[in-house]
């Protein structure tokens, strides 16, 4: 079986995978980082969003073996020395979550959005950019508020 090596949240990791092993399976089952969720498993809901080489992707639709040498950031890699990332803090303060299942993907997508479009985000832009992230609690109002607030703190 192939061995894959990558940097996850700043740490060099490697493990044995099959050709078909998905990145999200390697992250959750191989590395035990279960903050990244699998919702739809059909690349629609966005619960599995992580950053690969600085770009948000759906880790349920990426092969682990194809990420050889990549730098991956998951939700666990955001807080530094026990202090939440400003986007995580904004979700907490704005009640940007209800059941919390979609939250890791929402936060990873939100940070990617700020990286691409800057810290000043109007509501329409945030809603449009969230096309790839679904909240089954329909808690979008506060998610949008949290992202606008988090963006301004980043």
């Amino acid at each position: 079986m192939p061995i894959v090596s990558m940097k996850v949240n700043g740490k060099e990791v490697s493990g044995e995978v099959e050709g078909r092993t998905l990145l999200v399976e390697f992250i959750r089952e191989g590395l035990g980082l279960t903050g990244t969720h699998v919702g739809c498993d059909t690349s629609q809901c966005g619960a599995c969003v992580v950053h690969v080489d600085g770009k948000a992707i759906k880790s349920c639709t990426a092969l682990a073996v194809a990420c050889e040498g990549a730098e991956v950031t998951t939700i666990e890699g955001l807080a530094k020395n026990g202090t939440l990332h400003p986007m995580q803090e904004a979700f907490r303060e704005n009640h940007g979550l209800q059941c919390g299942f979609c939250t890791p993907g929402m936060i990873m997508a939100a940070i990617d959005l700020v990286n691409r479009k800057g810290k000043k985000l109007d509501e329409a832009t945030v809603r449009h950019e969230l096309e790839g992230n679904i909240c089954r609690c329909t808690g979008y109002h506060n998610i949008v508020k949290a992202i606008q607030d988090g963006a301004s703190r980043m």
Binding site: G46, A56, I57, K58, T61, D112, G132
Partner: peptide, 9 residues
């Protein structure tokens, strides 16, 4: 096309 994450791949 698709959404931002799909467009990145």
């Amino acid at each position: 096309i698709g959404d931002p994450h799909v467009r990145n791949c």
